[in-house]
Nucleic acid binder design. Structure first.
Length: 427
RNA sequence: GGGCCGGUGCCCGAGCGGCCAAUGGGAUCUGGCUGUAAACCAGACGGCUUUGCCUACGGGGGUUCAAAUCCCUCCCGGCCCA
């Protein structure tokens, strides 16, 4: 199975400047890059598609370059954004780039042993923050017309609006990204840029600029954006606006596993193809399982296990799966102490003195102190709506919680809604 | 620098002196149904020591018994002109 056929099967290519570039990737020896925005200290689940592209092409014998946008991050990509983005501080960016650097090692082989396919991690701050403005405008800006930049779909949305503008700073962003490609081409022989389909405009400005400045013909490929059935972007946590992160301290392996397990049926074919390295036969089989026995959620299980294993390792994947089963399929009262602690390992916890629980705690107070409600008013609301459970038993506003129901004499598992957990340990 | 328009709760957006914690939509949350889905249905959605009180409609000041609503001023955004 060569890369071309695999990528076709998985539907990883949305647009390409030249169809033959897939053949070149299949043959190996190409140097290709993807830029990552250092807007946070961790990559998020949505980036996994891009990270996997680099991993896939490295496995096929090419050299991947992960480019951290330490320089472009100072500006902020306006593509398809409807408002100006807040600027990040230099220190913040530096910290974020470090965080991302640490994560990528899990997915790409950066060791010298990889030879000509050894992955590189570069930071465009290294050249963007040092190039003199006048030089940049003469050598780079001369090659790009404002007309063509304004014609890009990605900035049109902003130009057409009458309530917000587009600052010159953000407008100039794509020029910086294009210049990255020039540097990578000259310094590292990079001939291909990949990205999400929202990057098509930026990428083609880059390929044009490289040709004009160096005479080298280079290419661009975009991958489809992963969307939910309702058209929303994929990767925000269960309902909330919280992103699903790849950093275990921001999104626990259990939470990541649960998130993927809950993926709606319609997105599983895409998730299988974009996020996993399962072989084609297995993927087709799981597609079929979703159609014939959706309630078993075999595809979701396979995705959750594969992704957690890829991101956090096999042990984490197995533990997350076991925890989910214990929490949702078995009675919590039947769990032995070790398993119980395992199950709630990811959940926040607090230690309470035996004496204060002996008196009994008002349910609303309990919720606020556990951080499951942000105010007493909200806590009362949850209680009235029947969304609060202690040890999987629903409680109401009149309940005074005491230690008598504690599991193994010392654990109270407080739950709000479907899956917001907090463990109270009685000491 | 000049002219015009605008800044309302997480977002969009009504309100334009009292009946306003502020219509509506979206997002979110909780419950129901279900497959720990989606869709759908119902409810909630500033806070508190909750028959009431406090804080809020860009900031500050003022008029008034009473202001998100009127006046002054400052800040911010958009459009047009220079």
């Amino acid at each position: 199975m060569n890369l071309r056929d695999d990528w076709r099967f998985r539907g990883l290519v949305q647009q390409a400047t030249d169809d033959a570039v897939l053949d070149r990737l299949s043959a190996g020896g190409v140097t290709a890059y993807i830029g990552f925005d250092p807007t946070a200290s961790s990559l998020h689940l949505g980036s996994l598609l891009q990270i996997n592209l680099l991993r896939r092409l490295q496995l096929a014998g090419n050299r991947p370059i992960a480019l951290a946008g330490g320089g472009t991050g100072l500006i902020g990509d306006p593509s398809f954004k409807d408002v100006e983005r807040p600027l990040l501080s230099l220190e913040q960016l530096r910290a974020n780039v470090e965080g991302i650097r640490a994560q990528l090692g899990r997915f790409l082989d950066f060791s010298p042993g990889a030879g000509s396919t050894q992955a590189l991690l570069l930071n465009n701050a290294d050249w963007l923050t040092t190039v003199p403005l006048t030089e940049f405008l003469r050598d780079v800006g001369k090659h790009v017309t404002v007309n063509q930049m304004m014609a890009k779909e990605s900035v049109k949305t902003r130009l057409d609006r009458d309530d917000v503008g587009l600052s010159f700073t953000e407008f100039a962003y794509s020029l910086l990204q294009a210049y990255d490609f020039v540097r990578l081409n000259l310094d590292h022989g990079c001939t291909l840029q990949l990205g999400g389909s929202d990057q098509w405009g930026n990428i083609t400005i880059g390929t044009d600029l490289v040709r004009k400045m160096t005479g080298h013909v280079v290419d661009g490929i975009t991958s489809p954006l992963l969307l939910r059935a309702d058209g929303q972007k994929f990767g925000k946590s269960e309902g909330g606006n919280e992103r699903v992160w790849l950093d275990a301290t921001l999104t626990s392996p259990f939470a990541l596993h649960q998130f993927l397990l809950n993926a709606e049926d319609a997105t599983t074919p895409a998730l299988l193809r974009f996020f996993t390295f399962l072989d084609h036969a297995t993927i087709l089989e799981l597609d079929g399982a979703t159609r014939t026995a959706p309630q078993k959620r075999q595809a979701q299980r396979a995705i959750a296990n594969a992704v957690v294993e890829l991101v956090h390792g096999g042990d984490a994947a197995r533990q997350a799966e076991r925890a989910g089963e214990a929490l949702f399929a078995e009675s919590i009262h039947d769990l032995d102490e070790a398993t119980l602690l395992d199950v709630v390992a990811d959940a926040p916890s607090s230690t309470w003195s035996k004496s204060e629980l002996d008196v009994g705690v008002e349910a609303a107070t309990l919720l606020v102190r556990c951080g499951l409600a942000s105010s007493r008013a909200e806590a009362r609301r949850f209680l009235e709506q029947g969304g609060v459970y202690v040890n999987n038993v629903r409680v109401d506003a009149t309940t005074r919680v005491d230690g008598s129901a504690a599991l193994h004499g010392r654990y109270l598992l407080v739950r709000r809604g479907r899956r917001q957990l907090h463990l109270v340990v009685v000491a």
